[in-house]
């Protein structure tokens, strides 16, 4: 039995493959309307006001009992900072990227770090670190394949993912987009680590077999994710890799990137996934919608199912739905705590 840990110690131990006092409970995006209201947040200000952002995200830790504090709210910061159109959504809908570049040459990232939204993330990391030193501060960032997809348009990414395997000319195009995405990723990652991040949480949503060829992921996606991961490790920070959809066919590739933890969603058979990857911890994989309309029984069952399947951390599939209720979030945390008491 390991003596009681802080949330931060717990998460870092899990990432290191060390024993924990109980399994950590973590999440991706945390733009929860109930917490926005309770903490006095205003839309769209909480996307650009670091204090408001941290107050909302912090309640996931202080009220619900989640071990991480996650900022920013959504996967648009990189794109907006590059000058792409972003629709800000609503208090209950995350912002979305609405335009893309025609040519890689159009992307200008010279002043990336000066952008208001990038600055908001960095300030929010510092502030969260000050306010919640006992929590794991985990910025939510867009991983290279998905960022390349934002740059060239997701539809183009999907088509190019098959064409580039067939023709060298198309591969050269793909590599050009990816190398730009990677440069931007590195600039942002370094700044987040310097701001005090305990880990970086990367979503490579568009590297999913739902959108690109699994072959493409292995040949092209894995090497760029690994390059980013190695860069992050050199700066002394761990990182988590999330990919959407049923990732069983690509999970070996995900593990080979060197990520310290893999995050999977509910479409994945946890037992199969943990059997394939072996030593790399996997986090997952409750159906996010349960936090909006799940019964206590459903929440407890799915939490236990993931952990029984070998998950080393309990996590909602693809992030916390904005309409999640605090009582359901607490039911989930409690279920993970109880499972730990029985099984660790």
């Amino acid at each position: 039995m390991v003596s009681e840990m802080t949330s931060r110690e717990r998460v870092l131990a899990m990432l290191n493959g060390k024993p924990v006092d109980r399994v950590p409970v973590v999440t991706g995006s945390t733009m929860v309307v109930e917490y926005i209201k309770k903490s006095g947040g205003k839309w769209p200000d909480f996307h650009s006001n670091p204090e408001m952002m941290v107050n909302v995200a912090g309640m996931m830790h202080t009220d619900a009992g989640i071990d991480s504090v996650v900022v920013p709210f959504g996967m648009f910061v990189e794109s907006i900072a590059l000058g792409l159109d972003v629709k800000m959504g609503r208090v209950d809908i995350q912002p979305s990227v609405r335009s893309f570049f025609k040519k890689p040459e159009e992307v200008n990232y010279a002043n990336f770090l000066e952008n208001t939204y990038v600055q908001t993330t960095l300030e929010a990391i510092k502030l969260a670190k000050e306010k919640y030193p006992e929590a794991a501060i985990a910025p939510f960032l867009v991983a290279p394949v998905t960022l390349a997809g934002d740059l060239m348009g997701a539809e183009n990414l999907s088509m190019l993912s098959i064409k580039c395997l067939q023709k060298e000319k198309q591969m050269a195009k793909m590599e050009k987009w990816l190398s730009i995405a990677l440069e931007i990723n590195k600039i942002y990652a370094k700044a987040c680590i310097e701001a005090g991040a305990d880990l970086l949480y990367y979503s490579d949503a568009s590297a999913s077999p739902n959108l690109v060829m699994p072959d493409f992921y292995y040949k092209v996606g894995v090497p760029v994710e690994k390059e980013l991961g190695d860069f992050i490790h050199e700066l002394g920070c761990p990182w988590v890799l999330h990919i959407c959809g049923d990732t069983v066919p690509i999970i070996e590739g995900m593990a080979s990137t060197g990520a310290d933890c893999l995050s999977v969603e509910q479409a994945v058979d946890m037992k199969k996934a943990t059997e394939i990857v072996g030593a790399v911890p996997i986090a997952g994989n409750l159906t996010p919608l349960l936090m909006v309309e799940g019964t206590e029984e459903q929440i407890v069952n799915e939490t236990r199912k993931g952990l029984n399947g070998g998950a080393k951390a309990s996590m909602l599939g693809c992030g916390t739905p904005p309409l999640s209720t605090s009582d359901r979030l607490k039911t989930w945390v409690k279920a993970a705590v109880e499972w730990s008491a029985e099984n660790l």
């Binding site: 539809e155 999907s158 088509m159 993912s161 098959i162 064409k163 077999p209 739902n210 959108l211 690109v212 060829m213 699994p214 493409f216």
Partner: peptide, 11 residues
């Protein structure tokens, strides 16, 4: 078959 194959077929 995968989504990208549907997409290039569609175009």
């Amino acid at each position: 078959a995968f989504v990208p194959q549907l997409m290039i077929a569609s175009s």
